[in-house]
C-alpha cells in the first residue's frame, strides 16, 4: 500500500498542449479588461478635473468682465473726488468756461 501511495503521490500526466493556449487567452483577456477598467477610471477622473478647471476659468472670466455684477462682499473705501485748484491762466478758468457755455446756448444753430 505504501508503494501504491508513493506512486500516486508522484503521479504526473502530460496535459494536452492546447491547455496553455486556453489559459493564456484567459489571462490576456483578464489583463486587457483590467487595463480597460483602469483607462476608464482615469478618463472619468480626467474629465472631472477638466470640467472643474473649465468651470473655474469661466467663473474667473465672468467676474473680470462684469465687476459690477460680481462685487465682493467686502466694503470698498469711498471714492475721493479730486478738487481742482484755481489757475491763473484764463483759458482754464472755470468762470470763463461757464460764460462760454452760456453764450453758446443762446446761439441757435
Amino acid at each position: 500500500m505504501e508503494d501504491f501511495k508513493q506512486k500516486l503521490k508522484h503521479y504526473e500526466e502530460e496535459p494536452p498542449n492546447i491547455n496553455w493556449d486556453r489559459l493564456h487567452s484567459r489571462l490576456s483577456s483578464r489583463k486587457t479588461s483590467r487595463k480597460m477598467r483602469q483607462f476608464r477610471n482615469m478618463s472619468i477622473a480626467a474629465m472631472f478635473f477638466a470640467l472643474l478647471a473649465f468651470g473655474f476659468t469661466i467663473q474667473h472670466l465672468i467676474q473680470n468682465r462684469n465687476p459690477k455684477v460680481y462685487t465682493s462682499a467686502s466694503v470698498q473705501p469711498p471714492l475721493q473726488m479730486e478738487t481742482l485748484k484755481e489757475v491763473s491762466d484764463e483759458l482754464y478758468s472755470i468762470n470763463r468756461v461757464i460764460d462760454l457755455k452760456k453764450n453758446y446756448s443762446k446761439l441757435n444753430f
Binding site: 500516486l8 503521479y11 504526473e12 500526466e13 502530460e14 496535459p15 491547455n19 493564456h24 489571462l27
Partner: peptide
C-alpha cells in the same frame, strides 16, 4: 508582473504534476 514568458515557464514545469493531481 504578469510576464507571459514566466507564466509559460511555470506552467510547463508544473502542468504535468498538477494535471496528475487533478486526474487523481
Amino acid at each position: 508582473l504578469e510576464r507571459s514568458k514566466a507564466q509559460k515557464e511555470l506552467y510547463d514545469h508544473y502542468s504535468k504534476l498538477f494535471f496528475g493531481i487533478c486526474r487523481r
